[in-house]
Amino acid sequence: MHAQSVKNSQTVSITSKLSHIYQAHSYRIAVFSRFLAAILGGYTFTAVFTSLLSITLPLKKSDAVLLSVSLTILIYSCVFIWVFAVKSLIRIWITILLTTAGLALLLSVLKGWL
């Protein structure tokens, strides 16, 4: 009983410490998270999206790849800007993760990887 309460108080102190750190640096963490979403999230989304594009475009195989490759930068920069334009960080992460996962699922179904 006693031990448990000690443990509880420890976890409480750790979480409170964490939340304290978060509050103290919340601005920095939000900025860091936004950059992370833009760079890494944008990269993965673009990679999956253009891969899907390269096998779905109704063109010759090499043409489809070249076209999707040429468009990657456009897509990447659009996602990048979108991440900074949207206010809610949580919405950004959810949208990126969901769309990327959805596209990846579609891609693996089409390629028969599953």
């Binding site: 673009t46 990679a47 999956v48 253009t50 891969s51 899907l52 594009l53 390269s54 096998i55 195989k61 489809a64 790849v65 999707s68 490759v69 040429s70 990657t72 930068i73 891609l107 390629k111």
Partner: peptide
Amino acid sequence: GLITLIFMLFPYPAMTAY
């Protein structure tokens, strides 16, 4: 400029198709 290095940055479309 990014396009000149694109196959290093995004090899994925080529990897999917070929």
